Simulated scan of single mutants.
Amino acid sequence: MSAPLDQVFAALADPTRRAILAMLLEDDMAVTDVADPFEMSLAAISKHLGVLTAAGLITQEKRGRVKWCKLEPDAMRDASIWMQGFGQFEPVNLDAFERFLASELPEDRTKDDTV
């Protein structure tokens, strides 16, 4: 596997980062809004966002004083193609991915996650 593909799978391995991606499926969000549902520090959320950004799954952009996060849906294309090579997986459908995340993630994230 290539380094970029390794980064995508490593980023997707964490439940907090998967939850963040599910949130960004709806719309771009300010970093502070991304952090709201989680009981962890803004610094911890920023580290998660840094991992997602390094993997190319999201982009961050400063608009005035606010940093915004945007999902990069094409970033999972290589991972999807790699999984299809096994013949057991369908291409990643972001709507189906969102439904999967909603079913797998608890509604109330009360534990303090670490990066």
Rank of each mutant, 00 (worst) to 15 (best):
R17E: 09
R17T: 01
D74L: 14
T59Q: 09
E39R: 00
P15A: 01
F9E: 09
Q60K: 08
G64I: 00
P4E: 10
R109E: 14
A3W: 06
D33K: 15
V66L: 03
E104C: 11
T53P: 04
C69E: 09
A96H: 12
T110Y: 13
S80H: 13
V66T: 10
I20N: 03
A30F: 02
P15W: 11
I58N: 08
V51L: 11
M1K: 08
W68A: 12
V92I: 05
M1G: 06
A44N: 07
E90C: 01
E39G: 02
E39Q: 03
E104L: 08
P91I: 10
A30N: 05
R65C: 05
A55T: 01
W82V: 00
L42R: 11
A22W: 00
M83F: 15
M76E: 11
K70E: 14
L101H: 08
A11H: 04
R77S: 13
G50E: 07
R99C: 12
V92G: 02
P73G: 13
D95Y: 09
E39N: 02
A102Q: 15
L105V: 00
A43K: 10
A10S: 12
L25G: 02
E61V: 00
L21D: 09
P15K: 03
T114C: 08
R63P: 02
T53S: 14
L24G: 03
P91R: 10
S41P: 01
L49Y: 03
A54M: 05
F38D: 04
